[in-house]
């Protein structure tokens, strides 16, 4: 394995590299976040969103990109914790005709569905709420996302921040107490240090 191929691996990232991004990105719809992520959500890679609370804006973080993607691609919501509410999704601009809601029984089915959907090549975004996923499982998903050129978003508890992960981007979300804004800590991104957290104002 030579250095170049090593450097393109999803689980290897270079802290100091500030060269212009060549990998495709999808705008998050939040300019400050786009800037910190080097363009936006990575395409053909996993993004981990580590969050413990529900109801702090963790989905709203994604809706601009999901709305944009739904014009040209399918999107899969796999094993969400509640019913994705159609009126709110439509109000956010997401084309419901391109949204597929996948219910699973158990972690195995969830991981399998994630892999199939990421790999399918027809999904722009794949959102998943995997119960348990070890590094090996995540690596498979990362490869599937590369293969299918999909943006994968995994919602996981914050305690996972201590575990290594092949995801290209790892974010930790927290509620800003004073302003009710959403604080996005960038734990990892490709091609650069993340620097300061981004605070997105409450809608």
């Amino acid at each position: 394995m030579n250095l170049n191929s090593l450097l393109t691996r999803a689980d290897i990232w270079r802290g100091r590299d500030t060269s212009p991004q060549t990998t495709p990105h999808l705008s998050t719809g939040h300019p400050a976040l786009d800037e910190r992520l080097g363009g936006g959500w990575p395409v053909g890679a996993l993004t981990e969103i580590l969050v413990d609370q529900k109801g702090i804006g963790e989905l709203r973080l994604l809706t601009p990109a999901l709305a944009h993607l739904s014009r040209a691609y399918w999107q899969a919501w796999i094993a969400p914790p509640h019913i994705p509410y159609a009126p709110a999704l439509a109000a956010a601009g997401i084309d419901l005709q391109r949204l597929v809601w996948i219910r699973t029984c158990g972690d195995d089915q969830t991981l399998w569905s994630l892999e199939q959907s990421l790999r399918s090549g027809v999904c722009g975004a794949v959102l998943g709420w995997p119960g348990r996923a070890d590094n090996r499982a995540l690596r498979r998903l990362q490869l599937a996302a590369e293969h299918g050129e999909a943006s994968g978003f995994l919602f996981r508890p914050r305690q996972e921040a201590h575990q290594p992960s092949p995801a290209a981007v790892r974010l930790e979300l927290e509620l800003e107490h004073d302003t009710r804004g959403l604080t996005v800590h960038i734990l990892k991104r490709r091609g650069g240090w993340a620097g300061q957290p981004v605070v997105l104002s409450a809608a």
């Binding site: 159609a86 597929v100 219910r103 199939q116 027809v122």
Partner: peptide
Amino acid sequence: TGIPDASAWLEKLRARLGDNAVGGLGP
């Protein structure tokens, strides 16, 4: 519309998870 063909993907999901596990949402 240029939307990619999802039928193979959906069929695969359905075959494994069951018809009711794979759905869409409508208002």
